[in-house]
């Protein structure tokens, strides 16, 4: 087994090679970074246009929605930047190329995920941080050190939920090969994470809290900073949900890795 230090050193080595390879597609990289930025602005522009017609959404103001969305953008960045490889698992399974990961003396998930590093995700992260700062100022929020630490922990937990959903959806490739529809489904549902979970009632609020936990991606954590008085006790469960879900995802991945029998080629 490798030590943590060795893994970190390896990560940088693999990443450096990947970025060199990507530099072949320089024009695409530049357009992608701009595209990523516009993509973040798209949802925001929909909010702004929508709030022209309505004073609030389920009691939440435009600026509060911007804050929730900014939190979401930051939380999704680690998945975008570090786990982008899930989208390509199906090709490696289909072609049989995935077999190479079994022959390296290191963790398979680590090696597979480290082979891609999505630089354009950094634009999204930067835009998210800028928006969070802007909406905090407009809302008059104050950030003592304790609250900043809670913010970091909250982002970490939400990121784990997002990473878990994506990796679990991508892992379906081990069984169904073409995991694209499953990934596309997960991707579509996650787009609704920045909306207040309070718009749902009954069974659906329960489902989006516990079964497809999109409420933990942005709404429950953002509520803590925006309206601490209304906070749901569920917020304190977020780190547990994040870590628990990731552990479960790792089990599913491991099961897939162990049950995959190759393509025979």
């Amino acid at each position: 087994m490798l030590t943590l230090g060795e893994y970190i050193r390896l990560y940088f080595l693999i990443e450096a090679q990947y970025i060199k390879g990507q530099m072949q597609y320089r024009a695409d990289f530049l357009i992608s970074s701009v595209g990523m930025f516009f993509s973040s602005l798209a949802t925001l522009s929909i909010f702004v246009v929508l709030f022209n017609s309505i004073p609030d959404l389920a009691g939440w103001s435009l600026m509060e929605m911007v804050f929730i969305y900014a939190f979401y953008m930051i939380a999704i960045s680690p998945m975008q930047i570090l786990f982008d490889a899930v989208w390509f698992l199906r090709y490696k399974i289909q072609s049989g190329e995935f077999v190479k990961y079994y022959f390296r003396p290191m963790n398979i998930m680590f090696y597979f995920m480290s082979e891609r590093f999505d630089l354009k995700g950094l634009t999204q992260l930067a835009a998210g941080i800028a928006l969070l700062a802007y909406s905090s100022i407009r809302l008059g929020l104050v950030w003592p050190v304790g609250k900043v630490l809670i913010l970091i922990l909250a982002v970490f937990s939400a990121s784990l939920v997002l990473i878990s959903i994506a990796v679990m959806a991508g892992s379906s490739a081990f069984w169904v090969v073409n995991s694209y529809p499953v990934l596309a489904l997960a991707w579509k549902v996650r787009e609704f994470a920045p909306y207040p979970i309070t718009i749902f009632d009954g069974i659906f609020r329960f489902a989006f809290t516990f079964i497809l936990p999109i409420g933990f991606i942005a709404f429950y954590p953002a509520q803590f900073f925006l309206r601490p008085a209304e906070i749901s006790p569920l917020f304190y469960l977020a780190p547990l949900i994040g870590i628990g879900l990731f552990a479960l995802t790792y089990k599913v991945w491991d099961l897939g890795v162990n049950s995959w029998t190759g393509t025979g080629s």
Partner: peptide, 22 residues
């Protein structure tokens, strides 16, 4: 460009906002 992720995604976003799809 050989790779079209950027231009395709950008087009999709522009279309979905400006076409009234969302």
């Amino acid at each position: 460009t050989e790779s079209i992720w950027g231009i395709s995604t950008t087009k999709e976003i522009i279309v979905s906002v400006l076409s009234g799809a969302l």
